[in-house]
């Protein structure tokens, strides 16, 4: 049973190899169990609990929170919460789609640069990460302020009344979201674009392809691995994003992230907050499942 074997140049018995494997795995596993699995389980339990009159948790279990999420409140059925969930999905999809649309030209632009300046361009893409997300979002306040050109141009075309800033608005939310997530799409996509086999593009040209056909058959299949990673890295956090919509969207543009934050914050309704979190998680998982089915044969990471 205790077989000897050569493992990457080392003479080991099978038993000691397994022992060593566990040794390496344990810290990571413990970390995941303590900080992901356990809190997840607690969240599930809490989502079935009840809010006490002072905002404390009362351990009376029911489906009340989920019913409320689906719209069955004390005053009859309202679609408010479902609309917020739906809006979150739409915002996440639009953000992801626009980020992808912007990333392709960006990546081809950078990949076309000589190797020496290429990494300078990549650094420019990454620089926003060096600043805190909240500060970056506040920076948009300045850019979108009434005195700045963007607001003035919008006022000139009567899109907003003069003297008003461009926030809070859906436009500002998308602007903030896309600037936040563009690097998450651009960087993995770039790694695919950089390795692109251009002879396939030439073959497509040689075979009388239109530009759309060249993209669909010679570029898209080759960049799918990077694209896929970028889409997930954007879509999943975009679903739960709350800083950007809170600051740039105001109360008019409530997303599920804000709703959850509100329950755990001002409303002091942890149980309902946990239920909404579960709803978000289910929705995200379902979206990923659909995505995986649509993109059959493509490895998600």
């Amino acid at each position: 049973m205790n077989k000897l074997m050569i493992w990457y140049g080392e003479l080991l018995s099978q038993k000691s190899l397994i022992k060593r494997g566990f040794l390496f795995l344990t810290p990571g596993m413990l970390w995941l169990i303590i900080f992901l699995v356990l809190p997840g389980l607690i969240l599930i339990v809490v989502s079935f609990a009840t809010r006490g009159s002072y905002g404390e948790l009362v351990w009376e279990f029911s489906f009340e929170n989920y019913k409320r999420l689906l719209g069955y409140g004390i005053f009859g059925w309202t679609p408010d919460y479902l609309l917020i969930l739906l809006r979150s999905v739409i915002v996440a999809i639009v953000t992801t789609a626009l980020s992808v649309l912007l990333s392709y030209p960006l990546c081809f632009f950078i990949a076309g640069k000589p190797e020496r300046t290429r990494y300078l361009w990549l650094t420019i893409v990454i620089i926003p990460f060096w600043t805190n997300m909240v500060i970056r979002t506040y920076a948009w306040f300045l850019i979108l302020a009434p005195e700045m050109p963007f607001a003035r141009i919008a006022a000139f075309f009567k899109l907003i009344s003069p003297g008003m800033p461009l926030y809070p608005s859906a436009f500002a939310v998308y602007l903030g979201m896309i600037s936040m997530f563009l690097p998450f799409v651009a960087l993995p996509l770039f790694s695919s674009v950089e390795r692109l086999d251009w002879t396939l593009v030439e073959a497509a040209q040689d075979l009388y392809s239109s530009n759309v056909r060249i993209f669909m058959h010679a570029i898209l299949p080759q960049t799918l691995p990077g694209l896929s990673v970028g889409v997930i890295l954007t879509f999943v956090p975009a679903m739960g994003m709350f800083v950007v919509p809170d600051l740039l969207g105001g109360a008019k543009y409530m997303l599920v992230g804000n709703l959850i934050q509100q329950q755990f914050g001002t409303s002091r309704d942890w149980a309902f907050g946990a239920a909404i979190s579960m709803g978000l998680m289910v929705l995200t998982m379902f979206s990923l499942y659909l995505y995986k089915r649509k993109s059959k044969g493509v490895d998600l990471i």
């Binding site: 086999d197 002879t199 030439e202 073959a203 497509a204 040689d206 392809s209 299949p221």
Partner: peptide, 16 residues
Amino acid sequence: AIKRQINTVFQSYALF
């Protein structure tokens, strides 16, 4: 290339 009635067999074959 798109317009030319000339086709190429590439060294790497460049099959899709």
